[in-house]
Simulated assay, not measured.
Amino acid sequence: MREKIKSAFNQLSEAYEHTVDKESLYNTELERPAMMLEIPKNLEQMQMLDAGCAAGWYTNEFLRRGAKVIAVDVSPEMVKATKRRVGTAAEVRCLDFGESLPFADETFDYIVSSLALHYIEDWRKTFSEFQRILKPNGILLFSVHHPTMDIHLSEKQAYFETELIIDQWKKNGQTVEVPFYRRSLATIVNEANTYFTIDKMIEPQPTGHFKLKKPEKYKKLMKSPHFLIVKVKNKK
């Protein structure tokens, strides 16, 4: 399944590089503003890991705030896109953060994972590795699909199961099958709390600009959340 996910995002890399930043209000006016509010404006002397960097929007923002950044993604094409965006200003690697990570213990002050963890079936390995490479009291900030949104895509409607979903994305005139794993809210919270101390949970709301551009979608999002953001602190 990891190969199918890699293949899907290789196909989607051009859209992420050239259109998502301008056209996807779910990114630009919903998830990203809420995530960035949880990150210090001054990141000088901070070592950041962008886990699931896609085409490098977050990597670039962290660099602008003064951070030292390592960005990783499972998709080789996404890695190429990030390198085109930031050049040599950040270290960009193609690797699967569902596996063991090639970083020393207590390397990072922050790990940020934007809409990437739901592509990993078993979080135990990932969270164990994140805990290892975070400094004591280091922060993990991650966003995922909201469980109440995901359940509508489930054929079985088995809310409490961790379930593989094959979604259909239409980008740049092509339809791409995108596999991901949906989880209950309790599963998300309990798995995070096993390795970290939960600081905050956020159900982001769309911005005023979203309302102006897509009023009907804005109304829908104000009634049914689309994303969930979780901020946790290393227990070490």
Rank of each mutant, 00 (worst) to 15 (best):
N193F: 11
L212Y: 08
G208L: 12
L141S: 11
A192V: 14
A54T: 08
Q174H: 08
L95T: 00
E99A: 13
T107P: 05
P33T: 14
G98P: 07
K213G: 01
T126A: 12
P215Q: 06
Y181L: 00
V176G: 01
Q205C: 01
I151Y: 00
I120Q: 10
S143L: 10
F103A: 09
I188V: 15
K125M: 13
E44A: 09
H118A: 06
Y16H: 14
K213Q: 15
R124D: 15
A158H: 14
G87Y: 08
K135I: 09
I188H: 09
T207V: 07
A55S: 15
S100I: 13
I133H: 03
A158P: 00
H118C: 05
D105W: 03
G138T: 06
K170Q: 15
T148Y: 13
A116M: 08
S154K: 09
N60E: 15
T162K: 13
F196C: 04
N27T: 04
M222K: 13
Y195N: 10
V230P: 04
F108E: 06
K171E: 15
K219V: 07
K233P: 04
N27Y: 14
A104F: 05
P76I: 04
Y159N: 04
G98M: 05
K4N: 14
K217D: 15
V74K: 02
E121R: 13
I151G: 05
K80I: 05
I165G: 10
N193E: 15
E106T: 00
S114L: 03
Q45I: 12
Q11T: 08
F142V: 10
P136H: 07
L117F: 14
G98E: 10
K211Q: 15
R183W: 06
Y181A: 03
Y159G: 04
R182Y: 04
A116P: 08
I70R: 02
G87H: 04
E44F: 11
A51E: 11
D150M: 02
I202D: 06
I198W: 11
T162I: 02
H145I: 15
V144C: 12
M35R: 01
R124L: 07
P102F: 02
P33Y: 09
T194P: 01
S143A: 11
S114F: 00
M35V: 13
E191I: 02
E31T: 12
Q47K: 07
F62D: 11
E31K: 03
H152W: 06
F180M: 05
V230H: 02
K4C: 04
V232A: 08
E203H: 05
A81L: 02
G208I: 09
R182F: 06
P33A: 03
L25Q: 07
L153G: 01
E91M: 10
E77K: 03
A186G: 06
R64I: 08
